[in-house]
Nucleic acid binder design. Structure first.
Lengths: 134, 134
DNA sequence: ATAGGGCCTGTAGCAACTACAGGGTCAAGG
DNA sequence: CCTTGACCCTGTAGTTGCTACAGGCCCTAT
């Protein structure tokens, strides 16, 4: 029922420094302390940290996570705010996907144009931004 | 033939501060100065900056750009080193693409599971890292 | 002469951590 | 009892790739 910061880290795959960092920026509450001044966490904190980590894995920014947490903490508030954040984030992800796919093709083309000759003839160098001569 | 730092920025879509930053970290050489101490660039520098920017757009890190530049600066060196960096980078991009695609699906599923009810019933909250109860 | 733009240096800030330095604490083994 | 090693503490500085001032000089046009 009581966890050290190390337990929390192991349970959620988070480095100790990161947990302290979350505390410092107010994402995690200041926990109780043992007599020897060790942080003393309970289930609630573990749940909150899991939530944060999961959301971060899904690519939400800390600000977005903060928003999600504050909405989810308010039982009277409806789901729409959360849905909005998630949908905006989905749009972002789709944009990134498209960009990366385009980049991939270009990169592939650049690589394919190189047949292992000397640099003077290398198409990669050429492809990567030479000045129009003169 | 002679460019100010502002010209360089306009020509390559780079902010002035960024150009000075590249100079500071040694990606761009220290340019000549006018009598009034303004940076005075030529074609070569413009080419180098274009190269850097293009490579950055393609997602190469500054360290990778540095490597590409040093390889491409050596005419005796063959193309293989460049090809290697580019291919490694392509692998990275493919990894990111796969991750993002997976994330997208998950995010989509999370959003679809929410039908606009109250937070207490919201699947998004539930999906985002709840503690296994007990 | 003065207003506006552009340029200069240097420092501090952003995200989101990560990595020390320099200590205190605790459980196990000799 | 003492020591070893693993854990914890605080606080600060580093990372990447810029971006944003602050405070000041310069240059052109009116």
């Amino acid at each position: 029922m009581a966890f050290t910061i190390g337990d929390m880290g192991k349970a959620t795959g988070t480095k100790i420094e990161t947990i302290r960092y979350y505390e410092k920026i107010g994402l995690l509450p200041k926990p109780a302390r043992t007599t020897s001044n060790y942080r003393d966490y309970g289930q609630a904190e573990l749940g909150r940290l899991s939530f944060i980590r999961r959301a971060r894995d899904l690519g939400f920014s800390l600000d977005q996570v903060r928003a999600l947490l504050s909405i989810s903490g308010d039982r009277r508030c409806d789901c729409a705010g959360i849905d909005k954040i998630a949908k905006e984030h989905l749009l972002e992800v789709d944009r990134k996907l498209a960009d990366l796919a385009a980049l991939r093709n270009e990169l592939k083309a650049v690589i394919d144009s190189c047949d292992g000759g000397v640099v003077a003839d290398c198409r990669i160098i050429e492809a990567l931004g030479p000045v129009p001569p003169g």
